[in-house]
Write a protein that binds this DNA or RNA. Structure first.
Lengths: 246, 246
DNA sequence: TCGACCGGGATTGTATGCAATACGCTTCCC
DNA sequence: GGGAAGCGTATTGCATACAATCCCGGTCGA
């Protein structure tokens, strides 16, 4: 329920509100990667002082969603390809653990919830709505919550957000990252108490997401590689002085 | 090299210094679980304002090493048994991933480094020095660094710290958490390119650490359980109104 | 004796102020 | 014309000020 505007929020709640707002804005790509995030502009917009904005920004920086350069302020992070690989690698590890914790332990009620969620994804996807991306991510988060492991939930939330940012940078625009059938299959394996199969499916699922999006653009990211054929056709060689990232 | 005291530190460095100092103090149990952490006192001790102390404390709170309750300040976190279980669960998942990334990919140089480190642990352990605990933890961190996955490294660092705090609460005092032979065996499996065996060993290793320390005191943590036999011998029954955690 | 009530002091939450740094523009020299 | 130097503005880093909250005594009344 909406809170009356005059009522003062409890201590610490406003900082959290700013944090959440910025976080959503980044993940939903209202703030695109690389965007500058000036403290006073944000503070003015939200009606809080720079102090609280700074707190929110440092939290986001820890999560890897924003980058803070000393004396130069904060920007929405622009993950490198290496960071992208790292994130998906860790995510696969965490989600495999999640599968093992969940296999055969879901209550019928939980299964129904998951099924409903998949139906929502389905629907959004059919409409081509942009919320399909959000919903696909929430499926994973929903599973994490069902483990009852709060730390795992936090890590999966964090790494999923990071992956969302990565996809917004390297992924094809608006390609729904998760095929529906994959989520359904995973749920089926979980219900069947087949931990290995669930883990394998999830692994393949994430691998597919990562590859569809990130590896597809791996070459494009390095302008030197991109230009190589053109250079070669003109008989041009790279400058010997600079190494391509040792 | 030590920096001259008059030289101003680069921007952001002092906050980080406070953060690191507090972190070490907690992990090395100079600040024991539950200790109050007043902003003023800390700031005075380090020669910085409360602003920077707050920044450090919020970072530590995110990592789970301190607990901040609004309007009541920060204390060194006092993890519950459930949080302890969660932490070890996640840690096992992360370290298994680490084993798979490392198996068969360690350079001879890296192996030598690890062997040296194990020798150090050995030595410290023989002397019964308290640094054996720190060294044992560093072994895991060293492995994480060798994966080249910065995110994994950060997560393992975080969860290891949390486990260290947990052991300081629930573990037997000064029991070296890691048997040396276990580290050696793990390294051997890694060198042998036997990912499955390395993963299994690491799993067993962490399971053993967790069980030796945490599960051993599982009963002791619940005062009701602890008192049950005394109550029964006196013919006393628990109050029916309150449920023991539904 | 016990509980409720109520300052006083200590501690936190947030805003704001000041100094330091970086960026962009103009100007000047080659 | 290109680049280097200088200056003004915008923005950050950090400290401090003020208000709000909480804890801990004591006091009072039942």
């Amino acid at each position: 329920m909406p809170r009356h505007a005059d009522a003062p929020l409890p201590a610490g709640a406003r900082a959290q509100a700013v944090y959440r707002a910025l976080r959503r804005a980044i993940i939903e790509q209202a703030l695109r990667a690389g965007t500058k995030l000036p403290e006073d502009a944000i503070g003015e917009r939200f009606g809080v002082s720079r102090t609280l904005v700074r707190e929110a920004l440092t939290r986001l920086a820890i999560e890897g969603l924003v980058e803070i350069v000393p004396n130069r302020g904060a920007t929405v992070a622009l993950p490198t390809l290496e960071e992208a690989r790292d994130a998906f690698e860790v995510r696969r590890g965490l989600e495999r653990l999640m599968m093992e914790l969940l296999a055969g332990r879901l209550s019928p009620e939980q299964c129904a919830n998951l099924r409903d969620h998949i139906a929502l994804e389905d629907e959004a996807r059919a409409r081509g709505g942009p919320e399909s991306i959000r919903l696909a991510g929430e499926f994973h988060l929903l599973l994490a919550q069902m483990t009852g492991n709060a730390l795992l939930e936090r890590y999966i939330d964090e790494v999923s957000s990071r992956c969302a940012l990565i996809l917004s940078v390297y992924g094809r625009p608006h390609s729904p990252e998760c095929a529906i059938s994959e989520h359904s299959q995973i749920l089926a394996a979980l219900e069947n108490d087949d931990a290995d199969r669930a883990a394998a499916l999830m692994d393949a699922h994430l691998q597919a997401v990562a590859e569809r999006a990130v590896l597809a653009s791996a070459q494009a990211a390095d302008i030197r590689t991109l230009l190589a054929p053109f250079a070669a056709s003109e008989g041009l060689a790279p400058a010997p002085g600079r190494k391509p990232r040792p």
